[in-house]
């Protein structure tokens, strides 16, 4: 692609993203949100984030991998426990990466 058409493509990507983000903030201004939807929206954070997290842990290479060889899954389980105990994002990332690097090194040496 030429720099011009690349720029245009990126610009439209930005417009699409921005429109999605802005859409319901503006639309729901005029509409009353039904109580069921309002209750359902409480579950957006756990639902969306888990839908991102689970495939990262269970399918790091694309196929389901529930084995001791899946370092991301084991690191993710440890990170979940640390997040639960400490409620701290920094410790969660640090513990998860430490376990991941350790397991990767162990798996590579075998």
């Amino acid at each position: 692609m030429s720099p011009l058409s690349l720029s245009l493509t990126i610009l439209v990507m930005g417009l699409i993203t921005y429109s999605i983000r802005l859409s319901l903030i503006l639309l729901l201004d005029r509409l009353d949100i039904p109580p069921l939807v309002q209750r359902g929206l409480k579950y957006v954070p756990p639902a969306v984030l888990s839908a991102i997290i689970f495939p990262e842990l269970f399918r790091p290479q694309g196929a389901l991998d529930v084995s001791w060889g899946n370092a991301r899954l084991l690191a993710g389980v440890v990170a979940t426990l640390v997040a639960w105990r400490t409620r701290n994002v920094l410790w969660t990332i640090a513990a998860g990466m430490a376990v991941f690097w350790l397991l990767s090194a162990l798996l590579a040496s075998h």
Binding site: S50, I53, A83, T92, G96
Partner: peptide
Amino acid sequence: ALDFTLALTFIGLVVPA
């Protein structure tokens, strides 16, 4: 595997909730 930090961040955000 620095990309893995993002999934860990999300774990750190979602689990306490």
